[in-house]
Simulated scan of single mutants.
Amino acid sequence: MNGSIRPVHYWDGRPVPHIAAWSREQLPPQPLSVIYGQGGSGLGFQDEDSRIDRHQGVLWLRMPAARGGQPRYERVHSLRQRRAMSHLLCQMCGGPTIGSRPGDERTLFLVGSAGGRPIAEGEHTESPPIHAVCALLAVEYCPPLRRGWAAALVDYTPTWGVAGLLYSPQPLEPLSSDHHDGLHRVPFTDDRRIRWTLAARLMVSLLGVTAVTDLDTLADVERESARVPG
């Protein structure tokens, strides 16, 4: 049995995305400080363990991974989002998206698009990939997607940067952002800003984009593949 598509969690009759946070996953204190190292000063934790607290050299928000209580659909769990993006796991079920369709190594991406704008070549996103089967659930239940969506099969997804809180060195305070979620989008190539960023989401570039308007046909291929032994 093809195990790439996993059961989706439900709460009160509604599917809960794999990357959604739960009420039990409350943010602990973030003991931030200015640290000094190779390349100059930057943001760090007072009790930092670089093996846990950093990814690709960037400081990450501390957030427990302990699902329970009630889902917080409006909040993204930073660690599950990062793992889903790094390993191309489905944002809904958490299963691997590579290999869900025989002979097709591309990954499917789905974003909100109330105005009908398609996903562009080279676009940056913090929304992890998704199975077509799971995408059908998402467009049915997710309010932003119900207002309109765009989907595309993508050949290559190199990491681009992060979405996170950007801090000023003196005083050590978060800077305001023009984005509705208060997060800054910072590329890894921007050394001046990335060293002062507390990352919350990993972002990738979408390359080799082929627009998808028929999710049902893709979902049928995935369902058929799941019935094939081995």
Rank of each mutant, 00 (worst) to 15 (best):
I5Y: 07
I5W: 05
V16I: 14
I19S: 04
A21E: 07
Q26F: 06
P28I: 11
S33W: 09
Y36K: 12
G40M: 11
S41W: 08
L43Y: 03
D49Y: 07
I52G: 02
Q56D: 13
L61V: 12
R62Q: 15
P64Q: 11
A66Q: 13
R67I: 09
R72S: 07
E74V: 14
H77V: 05
R83A: 10
L88T: 13
L89G: 07
C93F: 09
C93G: 08
G94R: 01
P96S: 12
I98F: 11
G99M: 10
P102L: 12
L108F: 12
S113H: 05
S113T: 07
T125R: 04
S127R: 13
A135R: 00
L137E: 04
L137I: 03
R146D: 09
A152V: 02
V154K: 02
T159C: 05
W160F: 01
V162P: 00
A163M: 08
E173F: 07
E173L: 14
P174D: 02
L175I: 10
H179E: 14
H180E: 13
L183V: 04
H184D: 10
P187T: 01
D190G: 05
A199F: 03
R201I: 04
R201T: 09
M203H: 09
G208S: 06
T213P: 04
D214Q: 08
L215F: 13
D216Y: 10
R223E: 09
E224A: 15
